[in-house]
Amino acid sequence: MSLHLVELPLSLRALHLWAGARKPGSFDEGSTLHHLLGETFGPAVLQPFRLMVAPRAQHGTIYAYARLDAEALRQQALTSLMPGHAEVIALDRLRSLPRPAYHWAAGQRLGFDLRLRPVVRLASALTGRNENGVEVSFRKGAEIDAFLSSALRGKENSREKVYVDWLAERLTPAASLDLAATRLASFQRLRIQRDRKRLDGPDAVLHGTLTISDPAAFADLLARGVGRHRSYGYGMILLRPAQRMP
């Protein structure tokens, strides 16, 4: 079944009102969108996804990959659409473009824009001082920032290098990363809500260029997404024209 790139406009004000009516006093963007899209189109139908919002804008756009095209998604949503959902999303403006596997070829260079939560799960307990000099301790199995994990192990790498290396590892074997043409575009620490737990961690955007190694694996990678929390707005590879070769 072919993959489709989906574009769905939404009202940010309506999104906040919808979330507030369900859970007053608390708003988690990723969790809210996870529930909104799941209730509208079905669980994991639009996944991975990414919300893009211009500065000071009142509306945003969700981009996602789906196995259904725009018309099929619209018809699927209309069978169970609730008035609250309809106030948030502009279903009549839902659009899509096919992204079939035959678009990709070995050696093909593509640019990308990728929002990530670059975290690792610890294979063993880890203790040390964080970047602020504070003593921290984590149990086996804890999910922590990949940069913090590297620092606690005494590796003197920049945050950008750690995140770029983290991504390169997860693109293999589908694609290789052009390290010279990939950079950390933005970073913040963000506390998210997952299963009644509050998790503090990295929220990063990487811009760069990759080269496809295995077209079939690359098609699967687009559909699957990169890293953890892919059903909450992370890990969607938005493709761009490749950057110029140095």
Rank of each mutant, 00 (worst) to 15 (best):
G133F: 00
S158K: 04
A125N: 03
K155E: 15
E143W: 12
S149G: 14
R139E: 15
A142T: 06
I144V: 15
E135M: 09
S137P: 02
F147T: 03
R153W: 05
V134G: 00
K155R: 12
S158W: 01
R139L: 11
E156A: 15
L122M: 07
L122K: 07
S124E: 15
A142W: 02
L126W: 08
L152Y: 01
A123H: 12
A151T: 07
D145S: 09
E143N: 11
G128Q: 02
A151C: 03
A125Y: 06
T127Q: 15
D145L: 10
S137K: 09
G128C: 03
L122H: 03
G133Y: 03
F147K: 02
N157H: 13
G128H: 03
E143Y: 07
G141N: 08
R121V: 07
R129L: 07
N130M: 02
L122D: 05
N157Q: 14
K155Y: 12
A123E: 13
R121I: 01
S149V: 00
G133D: 01
F138V: 13
R129D: 04
L152S: 02
G133T: 02
E131I: 04
R153S: 07
A142G: 06
K140W: 03
V136M: 09
A142K: 08
R153G: 11
A151N: 00
F138T: 07
A123G: 14
N132M: 00
A151F: 05
G141V: 06
A142E: 13
K140T: 15
V134C: 00
G133W: 01
A146L: 04
I144A: 12
A146W: 06
G128Y: 00
L126D: 10
N157W: 14
R121K: 14
E156C: 04
V134P: 02
S149W: 14
S158M: 05
A125L: 06
L152G: 02
T127H: 14
R121P: 02
I144L: 15
N157S: 14
G154Q: 09
S124P: 02
K155P: 01
L126S: 11
V134W: 02
G141W: 06
V134E: 01
K140L: 08
A146I: 06
E143V: 15
A151H: 10
N132E: 01
E143D: 10
R121T: 12
S158G: 09
A146N: 08
R139D: 14
E143M: 15
A151M: 06
R153T: 10
A142F: 00
A146F: 06
F147Y: 15
A123N: 12
D145M: 13
E135Q: 15
L148E: 00
V136A: 01
R139H: 13
I144R: 08
A125V: 05
D145H: 11
E143C: 10
K155I: 10
R153V: 09
R121Y: 11
L148M: 05
G154Y: 12
N157F: 10
R129S: 05
R153D: 04
N130R: 01
N130Y: 02
N132D: 04
D145G: 07
R139I: 03
L122I: 08
E131S: 12
I144P: 05
S150A: 15
N157P: 02
K155M: 10
E156P: 01
G133K: 03
A123T: 12
S150D: 10
N157K: 14
G154N: 10
K155G: 02
V134H: 00
S137N: 12
I144S: 11
G133L: 00
A125F: 09
S149F: 08
N157A: 13
